[in-house]
Design a protein around this nucleic acid. Structure first.
Lengths: 341, 341
DNA sequence: CTGTTAGCGCTTTCAT
DNA sequence: ATGAAAGCGCTAACAG
């Protein structure tokens, strides 16, 4: 039988209450008593039963999610995953609140962050915007002891506890290699569609993409990035325009959202051009385009995994517990038409 | 506050014990009483607190893992992941036992299965061999109420509760498309190295590979499969031999384990041939080969995910609980040198 | 500073 | 067939 608080109380010659105080690092224990208890814990090899502790505490985890109010399939999917998690809330002792803020607006994000913090949640997850004021706001939360996890887009330089998202530089490089290899040794131009250079994930994807292209595929030249603000309409306009202007485009990398518009533009040109296309995020639209051959490969981050991971990590951090690192690493999914889920 | 057994006892006008009997479908409750309780449960919207139940029961989950005694990196990795899970056992209330059986030997597997079953574990995970006697043995376990999960290689036609592994047909097709696209429109032969056609996962990968090759890349002809029994030495011999015999080989697909030998054979030919290579399973050896360019892409199944998933599913099935399907779907990882973890 | 005691939500004897 | 009461491992008043 696994040792319990009773065992260490007996071994240390103290009461349960004292053991509990030591276990939870509460004050009111003489140094010498505390040491006795700690020795007993170590010697007996005690590991606390978190479930029992949570039961006794009636602990629940109020969690806040802050998301951009973007009307694209990826964000809809992320929202859906959070709703799924809400359904599981009773079993996981969480209570999740989501807050939508204007996209690409650091001030709005900071305001939402501060407002949420006032409710003193057990943890906060946010899709970060890479701006100094956001870093400051996040660091303030961390300072007052609220666990913070960035979701999808990271906030380097901040003291956030964890990032639940993919390595975006690697994603960009992977896109470049895929495009480069698929194009064989053809020569031409490559168009790049992004959402906004304000968010770190998009910047990093572009950076990785451009770097590998320059380094390994010198026959392909990368055109200036188009910023579609993750908006299907704008994306459509920009891509259609670019394809019309640049005759020599043979490849396209779409590293943001709003792919509905991109696909429409591609299909319009399909008859006269043979384009190799790599896009991000698996949605109903990109899935259909992959199957019908408009898109050649999709890079994806699993929103469900990201949400579940963020929740696990926030809970663990709230309790000062360890996480399984490998389980929390968000992998870059690569989908060809053959391995769609 | 979430409703508890007390609430439904009060609502139904019965005692806790009776509520518990209904909840756990134990006998000794009049039909009419049972119905009263069930109505109350439904009306109040009660959901049982599994953690509290497990605490009261002192429940633990004795789990058995049956693995082939193969000396290759993939199996070593799988073993390591199981050991990791053993470390977490106290927290997860599991106690895990692993059994090694001779590889590719149905009779040995059946014997191990029956022996393990005698210990009446809460669940069994096995790397299946696709043979009728194994199906029969698994079905017997299921019949006596032991949850069974196949790991890595499935056992279709059996009544196993779940398969924790990748879609191997899709994996084969993906390998084919990657190889085909990377080779552009070059013409030539493709060599295929497998472990054994006795295991379903290898057969399915080959099937998917050959089908897509025939269908979409007619310029590439697939040579007869080489069976290396997941053994590095044998694999080396077979591949070296094939490369020597067939001048026109321009691509290689290694769908099994034992890649150490394959890589050695490839490097020997590297100076005079330019081969495009897709292999399965990320190990120290394949990783190094991917980085140095000997291998072009690696298809992988995440052993850690598979093991954690198998454990989650076995526990859930043992309690008759639901699982999060998306979480238990094992994805096919595709690694290029740019997105290595 | 330390100990006693009741109780978290559920299960399990043991009576009735 | 049903209920009362004790207890799983831990925490939290409240006393002392």
């Amino acid at each position: 039988m696994r040792p319990t608080v009773h065992d260490i109380a007996a071994a240390a010659g103290v009461s349960l209450a004292t053991v509990d105080r030591v276990l939870n690092q509460r004050p009111g224990v003489r140094r010498i008593t505390r040491e006795k208890v700690e020795t007993a814990i170590r010697q007996i090899g005690y590991v606390r039963d978190v479930a029992a502790a949570n039961l006794a505490k009636g602990r629940t985890y109020p969690l806040g999610f802050i998301l951009p109010a973007s009307d694209n399939s990826f964000m809809h999917g992320l929202n859906a995953e959070i709703r799924e998690a809400m359904i599981r809330s009773p079993a996981e002792r969480t209570s999740i609140r989501t807050v939508e803020v204007a996209a690409f607006d650091p001030a709005a994000l900071v305001a939402a962050l501060e407002k949420l913090a006032d409710e003193r949640p057990a943890g906060i997850a946010l899709v970060a915007i890479d701006a100094p004021e956001v870093v400051a706001a996040v660091d303030k939360l961390v300072a007052v002891g609220i666990p913070v996890v960035t979701l999808v887009s990271d906030l380097t330089g901040s003291r956030r506890h964890h990032y639940a998202g993919i390595d975006n530089i690697a994603a960009g490089r992977t896109a470049a290699r895929l495009l480069g290899r698929f194009l064989g040794d053809a020569e031409g131009e490559v168009a790049v569609l992004a959402g906004s250079m304000l968010v770190r994930d998009h910047r990093e994807r572009l950076e990785g993409f451009a770097a590998l292209m320059a380094q390994e595929f010198p026959k392909l030249s990368v055109l200036p990035v188009l910023e579609g603000r993750d908006d299907p309409e704008l994306a459509h306009m920009l891509v259609a325009d670019a394809l019309a202007k640049h005759e020599r485009v043979i490849g396209v990398y779409s590293l943001g959202a709003g792919n509905r518009g991109l696909i429409r533009a591609l299909k319009a040109k399909a008859s006269c051009r043979n384009l190799t296309v790599v896009a991000h995020e698996l949605t109903v639209h990109t899935r259909a385009a992959l199957i019908d051959g408009t898109i050649d490969a999709i890079l994806n981050q699993n929103a469900g995994h990201e949400v579940r991971s963020a929740i696990r990590v926030l809970k663990a951090k709230a309790d000062g517990l360890a996480v399984i690192d490998a389980q929390e690493r968000i992998r870059l999914d690569i989908f060809l038409k053959d391995n769609l889920p």
